[in-house]
């Protein structure tokens, strides 16, 4: 039984998740802020060279164990990318490079969802894809520390 037919007709149907009010520009501010922060980070790493000792602290895992983690070389990769040196970026950390389009996809999906005032995702992706990511991260971590995997090391 609908007690207020006029309200049910004129109100927008509630979207799932948190209903967001306000205009579109306000809703897309968080994604735009994240993009600005990311750009600022890349510019900073591009200017302050991670190849020079003393500019950044060494990875804690590398310091403690002597082995490289999956993220080792990420700063130098971003530095190379900021200077358009894709070849050097490839030799430093392929995992970081591979994650860039993935993160870009999630960012675009998030931005579009905010602009349309819709849930960021309406169905769950195949969990096997995330398991594949997990296995690839672990393999990358292992292999880049083995002698035959030195080409993956930073």
């Amino acid at each position: 039984m609908r007690t207020g037919p006029s309200a049910s007709v004129h109100d927008a149907p509630p979207t799932n998740g948190s209903p967001r009010s306000g205009n579109r520009l306000v809703r897309v501010l968080p994604p735009l802020g994240v993009a600005a922060l990311a750009m600022a980070g890349v510019v900073f790493v591009g200017v302050v060279d991670p190849n020079e000792a003393g500019h950044y602290p060494t990875c804690p895992f590398l310091s403690l164990t002597g082995y490289q983690c999956p993220g080792c070389g990420a700063l130098r990769t971003f530095h190379a990318l900021a200077h358009g040196d894709l070849g050097t970026a490839f030799t430093l950390n392929v995992f970081v490079l591979a994650m860039l389009p993935v993160l870009a996809f999630f960012w675009v999906r998030w931005t579009v969802a905010r602009a349309r005032d819709r849930p960021t995702r309406t169905k769950a992706g195949d969990p096997r894809l995330i398991w594949l990511l997990f296995v690839l991260v672990m393999l990358f971590w292992l292999v880049r520390n083995l002698p035959f995997g030195a080409f993956l090391a930073a």
């Binding site: 990875c59 895992f61 993220g71 990420a74 970081v96 993935v102 993160l103 960021t120 769950a124």
Partner: peptide, 19 residues
């Protein structure tokens, strides 16, 4: 209904940046 967030982006970012 929309599935709850899985925070995969945070997982990837923390794995890359602080690992």
């Amino acid at each position: 209904s929309a599935p709850p967030p899985n925070y995969l982006v945070w997982a990837i970012v923390t794995t890359v940046l602080c690992c």
